[in-house]
Design a protein around this nucleic acid. Sequence first.
DNA 1: AGTAAGGCGGGCA
DNA 2: GTGCCCGCCTTAC
Length: 99
Amino acid sequence: MDFSNKVFLFCQKIPSGKVTTYSELARVCGSKKAVRAVGNILNKNRDFNNVPCHRVVCKNGEIGGYVFGTKKKKDLLKKEGVIFVNETKVNLDKCLFRF
DNA sequence: AGTAAGGCGGGCA
DNA sequence: GTGCCCGCCTTAC
């Protein structure tokens, strides 16, 4: 319960135009190996209203998955100013937000 | 490069 | 209340 709360909190801390990875997110939440748990939380809770989970991507820069579809996620990120290296990957070097 | 296994919380049976 | 399976992944073989 506390874990998911952290996840949501950190997600909201991500500024517009920046992204983070599930690994980093899991790490700051206490368990760096709980990346799957993080994904599960974001997916099941889908607090897109309170949590911009579209700003969370895979470690390699790929979008990964998204409740509304990866296309939507990509589109949202683009609008926020996130640099994309191609249609499916973001530029982590420029847009990775580190806690 | 591809495949398999892994560690972790949430949700449902 | 307990247990099992799943997931927007990661890492190792």
